[in-house]
Simulated assay, not measured.
Amino acid sequence: MTADLFETVGDARPPRETIGEGAALLRGFAKPFEAELMPALREIVRQAPFRHLITPGGHRMSVAMTNSGSLGWVSDPSGYRYDGIDPNSGTPWPPMPPVLRKLAADAAAAGGFNGFASEACLINRYVPGAKLSLHQDKDELDFAAPIVSVSLGLPAIFLFGGLKRSDPTRRYRLEHGDVVVWGGPSRLAFHGVAPLADGEHGLLGRQRINLTFRKVRLGAAGR
Rank of each mutant, 00 (worst) to 15 (best):
K215I: 04
E21I: 01
T66W: 03
P98E: 08
A108F: 09
S151N: 05
T212I: 00
G205N: 00
V63F: 03
A130R: 03
A156C: 11
I54T: 13
L25I: 02
A3H: 13
V99F: 05
P168F: 03
A12Q: 13
R217D: 12
P185D: 00
S133P: 01
H191T: 13
A189D: 04
V63P: 06
A12G: 12
E43Y: 06
A3N: 14
G184L: 00
G58W: 04
A3W: 11
K215Y: 02
T55S: 11
A35E: 15
L174G: 05
G177K: 07
N210R: 04
G111A: 06
G79Q: 01
G22H: 12
V193E: 06
H59G: 10
L163H: 11
F6G: 06
D142H: 03
L26S: 06
G111T: 04
A144F: 03
S151K: 07
G84R: 13
E21S: 10
A109H: 11
A194G: 09
M1F: 13
G183N: 08
F50T: 05
G90I: 02
V193D: 05
W93I: 07
G90C: 02
L211P: 00
L41Y: 09
A156N: 12
A40K: 10
A144S: 15
G84S: 13
S89H: 06
R27W: 07
H135Y: 07
M61G: 03
P128K: 10
R223Y: 13
V193Q: 04
F160M: 04
K138G: 08
G10P: 00
P95R: 15
G112Y: 05
R27N: 10
S166E: 14
G58D: 09
G205E: 00
P128N: 09
V63A: 01
Q47H: 14
M65C: 08
E7A: 14
P56V: 00
P92Q: 07
M65N: 13
D11I: 10
V99D: 07
R214P: 06
G79D: 07
I147C: 04
A197H: 10
A110W: 02
S166K: 13
E119C: 02
I123M: 02
I157F: 10
S75N: 05
S75C: 07
I123R: 08
D86N: 13
A104P: 04
L204E: 05
I123T: 08
L134A: 09
R16Q: 14
E21A: 14
D4Q: 10
P87L: 07
S78Y: 05
E140Y: 06
G115A: 11
F50L: 11
S75G: 08
V63R: 04
F33D: 07
R46N: 10
A105R: 11
S151L: 05
D4F: 15
A23M: 09
M1L: 12
G115I: 03
W182S: 07
G22S: 03
E34A: 14
Q136D: 06
M61A: 11
T18S: 15
D106V: 01
G79F: 09
L141G: 15
S68N: 00
K102C: 09
A156H: 07
L211D: 01
R173D: 08
E175P: 00
